[in-house]
Design a protein around this nucleic acid. Structure first.
Length: 286
DNA sequence: AAGCTCTCCTGATGGC
DNA sequence: TGCCATCAGGAGAGCT
């Protein structure tokens, strides 16, 4: 599941293989992949044709390619299973190929959006003066953004009447964190996912943010190492980081700190993985 | 009105 | 073997 580190690896791939190329034509093979572009597939293709792509940006799990001369940007979200692949023209179509972008240059590669579960998609939007696509103005800065405000995040936690994992997944408070990295950071910080945010002390918040950044940087270090290999990491896979996970998916396996069997709990139509000894439940929850 | 639940989608997997 | 249920989950719509 692509979260911030995986999306950042994709952004680097786009920067290397797609930036500064001019679009020749766009083929939309599945309408759902373009549903956030309300004007439809023909409009999407027409607005890109003949225009040069700028350098890709990212905020949280969103990434975008500016269109150099129109003030618009192609916004991409990978959803659960989306991939952006740079492939040779002759490569066979992937089973779940949704959108193909060809370029005018002589490089023998095209950009492909492939997505099995079609939660992701591409769309075109105007950009705000700071270059952000206008539809993601509500998405908070992510923890790897130098302008992320730790103190403001702490104050927001104090104001909320919710629990910490919900807050970590709330993209308007902090972006880029999904189910996997939330569980990983909480395990590292020894915090139970149902702990109320209102009781967080400043040191506790700052420590948690440190763990969020550490686990994301560790994933980037692994997934980002080979992004210059054309067909490997331009695609949103997390590289080999899944071998390094301490919490996610480890139900029944010994906690890497205290050897207590890890647990999985149903939580908001998904799962939370945690160590029942290192991450004690708050009194209010059972 | 903030906070929570529901829904979209497809393929892998497991039970009977 | 076939059929149905379950699970994976990001994010926004919609409900309370």
């Amino acid at each position: 599941m692509p979260e911030l580190p995986e999306v950042e690896v994709v952004r680097r791939g786009l920067d290397r293989w797609v930036a500064h190329r001019t679009v020749a034509d766009v083929e939309v093979l599945h309408p759902r992949a373009i549903r956030r572009h309300l004007a439809g597939p023909e409009d999407f293709a027409h607005r890109l044709q003949g225009h040069r792509m700028g350098e890709p940006g990212r905020r949280g799990k969103y990434l975008w390619l500016p269109v150099e001369d129109t003030g618009e940007a192609v916004l991409a979200h990978l959803g659960m299973s989306g991939q952006l692949l740079v492939q040779p023209h002759g490569a066979p179509d992937e089973k779940h190929l949704r959108i193909r972008v060809r370029f005018t240059d002589a490089l023998d590669t095209e950009l492909r959006f492939v997505d099995q579960r079609t939660f992701g998609g591409l769309s075109l939007h105007d950009t705000t003066p700071d270059g952000l696509p206008d539809v993601i103005a509500h998405i908070a800065r992510d923890p790897l953004d130098p302008l992320f405000d730790d103190e403001a995040f702490h104050q927001a936690l104090r104001r909320k009447r919710t629990t910490i994992k919900r807050a970590l997944l709330d993209q308007s408070l902090i972006s880029g964190v999904g189910n996997i990295y939330a569980d990983e950071a909480l395990w590292r910080a020894r915090i139970h996912y149902e702990r109320p945010t209102a009781g967080f002390t400043r040191p506790r918040t700052f420590e948690l943010l440190g763990h969020v950044r550490d686990v994301m940087n560790a994933a980037l270090a692994v997934g980002g190492t080979s992004f210059d290999s054309l067909y490997v990491n331009v695609n949103g896979e997390s590289g080999y980081f899944d071998r390094s996970l301490d919490a996610y998916g480890r139900e029944g396996l010994p906690c890497r700190r205290c050897a207590t069997p890890m647990r999985r709990r149903a939580w908001t139509n998904r799962s939370s993985y945690f160590c029942p000894r290192c991450q004690r439940a708050p009194r209010t929850s059972s």
